[in-house]
Nucleic acid binder design. Sequence first.
DNA 1: CAAATAGTGTCTCTAAGACATTATTAG
DNA 2: CTAATAATGTCTTAGAGACACTATTTG
Lengths: 252, 252
Amino acid sequence: MPSKTPSENDFLQSYDPRGFDPVAVTVDVVALTIRDGRLHVLLVRRGEPPYIGQWALPGGFVRNEDLEEAAARELAEETGLVPGDLDRVHLEQLGSYGRPGRDPRMRVVTVAYLAFAPWLPDPKAGSDAAAAEWTPIAETRQLAFDHDRILDDGLERARSKLEYTPLATRFVGDEFTISDLRAVYEVVWGEQLHAGNFHRKVLSVPGFVESTGASTERGGPRGGPRARLYRRGDARQLHPALLRPSREDEIR
Amino acid sequence: MPSKTPSENDFLQSYDPRGFDPVAVTVDVVALTIRDGRLHVLLVRRGEPPYIGQWALPGGFVRNEDLEEAAARELAEETGLVPGDLDRVHLEQLGSYGRPGRDPRMRVVTVAYLAFAPWLPDPKAGSDAAAAEWTPIAETRQLAFDHDRILDDGLERARSKLEYTPLATRFVGDEFTISDLRAVYEVVWGEQLHAGNFHRKVLSVPGFVESTGASTERGGPRGGPRARLYRRGDARQLHPALLRPSREDEIR
DNA sequence: CAAATAGTGTCTCTAAGACATTATTAG
DNA sequence: CTAATAATGTCTTAGAGACACTATTTG
């Protein structure tokens, strides 16, 4: 390291975090997936106080890496993902949370990330976090710290992102039917959509999906014709957007 | 402070930032306003290395306060805003930036905020930052650290927010004409809008603006009738949205 | 007066949503 | 066979954008 000039030393002094209250920076991940037709979030059970025994979002310290790298690393550690799997997971920054007192031990600022994942295997017991589980959203309650708030913000972001981006395709496999895609929207938005209109709408948005030419082997479990299979298209934005019905109340 | 249990001590050990590289947390503010028909951003000239003499976004350390409080405080310090003024400024979190090496001295994670302000007086010389200035966006170049990137992200967020929120009204005074509002959109989006269609559109969105009943004292500087005056409405979202024209290229 | 601008009217085209219809499959 | 469902068609209405037009004001 080069020797420091006096002014640099003054500067470092004023930048030294020990001159202020010490701060830690963590990342937390809201990882969402769909299992058995329900939206799930990845949670870990805390093995230490505070909030011992309670569920929390997976996360941890930022090391000598970029913030997004830290989030990807934490996610991989908790889920047992191998690097190749990460390509199929969408990861984006959600926001930062730093209210004093949000961690009772010291000042911790956390940068939250939101992940959309297709079906993934259950987290390996024996991996870093002994007790990590995909938990149905409806069954999560009283998470540690301010993680309830972070989860809510993540859910709202997810609902909103489905409107104007093709990220719904991140919840399904490489090949999917329009009905599979509709199921994603219905689960995330929590409301039924009109099958016919949805179908026409998806196909009318340029670059949303692209035909594989193939069809499913069988019809639905209770009848119906075999459905055509599609892949993700190359659009990054949906134009026009697929807006949620009935937002009247949220507008004011 | 209460004495710590052994497990808490273990915990604190593993949480102690001194066990990792020390990290500092700052806030930086992208404060936008419109002056003389051009979009301006608040910049400060750095008086210390590194990047001495270069322009940077205003910002500083997070103290014992919430992140948004820190951003509001920094903004107030640089602009000489009094608390009452802050009500007229919109402030929202933009994102966090923490790439190792973004500050050559130590690891610094910054939480960036975006502010929309109506016309504000020039920053007082003699206040905290001697050299703070509202600078036209077109004339900013080579900001310190990764502030170019943060500014770009802030501009894109601002452009996008005008589409589906009534935040354009934050750039104008309490009473404004539809033309004033159109000027905001044109300046932020950087393109001309059709006056007639814009007018009809704004009035058709419920809660966007609300009539005062009054009109301007005079017509435009080069002729034209006097325009009606409006106030901000109570909508938090624009429905339907006011979409930017010509996004074809950005979609893929 | 001419030029500029506020505000409104009209027309076309796209898209959303309600609803109907046809074809194909499982059981 | 019946029930379910993929996929398409039809109709109505809302909204975006192009364009025209009138009234009002400045210089």
